[in-house]
Design a protein around this nucleic acid. Structure first.
Lengths: 193, 193
DNA sequence: GCTAATATGTTAGCTACTAACATGTAGCGG
DNA sequence: CCGCTACATGTTAGTAGCTAACATATTAGC
């Protein structure tokens, strides 16, 4: 049967090579102007191999590897907290970890995504899954209207923070922006204009 | 020079015929399973004519004809209201007008969009524009973080209401759902779990 | 060494979408 | 009525993302 160890490693290498070359070419010539064929050649494989590793061209940039970690982080927070505070803390903690390890790469990817219409569109689509994750964190079972709105609102705050971070070119710090966005939810939502 | 009246009318007719046939075919066979070629043939034109009227296949379903009316409705509200109340009232009023005139068509379109991944993705992308509209309604000039978050939050509430409406198959009434979603913003956001 | 699994390549095809050029039809000045 | 012009539409050919069918090569396990 099954998986000899070095073969898995080779696959992982091929995958990483494809992703590296893709991101390099996207940075050099832009997303639309880069063809899958070019990425495959740069990584030394055929274009079919590319699609065996990434179902679409968009997935080489997006790939939602963060959701499981977010889910875990939310579950870890005490259930006595206000639901929005729970999500805030979990998101902060999760993103700060990635941020500390890989700040520049994250910034580059977020910027590329937000400046490319096709990637932006797919990003919102992926957030569908993240929102369901928030909903389940906020309440078990079929979510009520209240839970759905709260989950959507948290996602809106998170997204806004990411956008501001990308727009500032990394001048501001992401954790601060996240705190600022969630502070608006808690404080300013019921105030006057 | 230019534009004889009947010619404009003929163009409008062709455009409408394309849209009607497209929506009919989408309803019968699904969005992905319907090809642009089929739509064009059903409307009695070639596939190039389709693209002259609609830049992409998605646009035949989406088309953001609502934003200008929303902008107008927001401006019409007194500026003494809380910004979220203003947007709430404007959205309610605007959507209720469409709703009353064309309830079934609107429901069908929203359902088609939300059940089709490619259309969902483009919908979020279009909301980029709607959000900017909300931001400008909330404050002139370069929007602050607070304004950005508030605009995103309003859009999240609106979107959630539309989703619930589509998911209920029209059993619930859209205006009620909108009120319910915005009530969560005003009331439940600062409460306990 | 033989066999079977598996990663990859080749080829062909579909669909969304674009561009270059051709055609037909209708309005208009002579 | 004729030719000119404008313009909607058609034709054809091409590109890119993506899929599927089949071929090949490398290697795992016997």
């Amino acid at each position: 049967m099954s998986a000899p160890d070095w073969r898995e490693r080779k696959k992982a290498q091929t995958r990483m090579r494809l992703q590296e070359q893709a991101l390099r070419l996207f940075a050099e010539h832009g997303y639309e102007a880069t063809t899958v064929e070019q990425i495959a050649v740069a990584a030394g494989v055929s274009h079919m191999t590319f699609f065996r590793y990434f179902p679409t061209k968009e997935d080489v940039v997006l790939g939602d590897e963060y959701d499981p970690m977010l889910a875990e982080a939310i579950r870890a927070r005490p259930r006595t907290e206000h639901p929005i505070a729970r999500i805030h803390a979990a998101v902060r903690q999760g993103l700060v970890a990635i941020y500390a390890a890989d700040r520049e790469a994250l910034l580059g990817r977020v910027q590329l995504i937000l400046r490319t219409p096709a990637l932006r569109a797919r990003l919102w689509e992926n957030q569908f899954a993240t929102r369901e994750l928030f909903e389940q964190a906020l309440a078990k079972g079929a979510p009520s209207m209240r839970v759905r709105v709260l989950a959507a609102v948290c996602l809106a705050a998170l997204t806004t923070a990411l956008e501001q971070w990308a727009a500032s070119g990394g001048a501001r710090e992401l954790p601060e922006l996240i705190d600022e966005a969630f502070r608006v939810l808690r404080r300013d939502l019921t105030d006057r204009s």
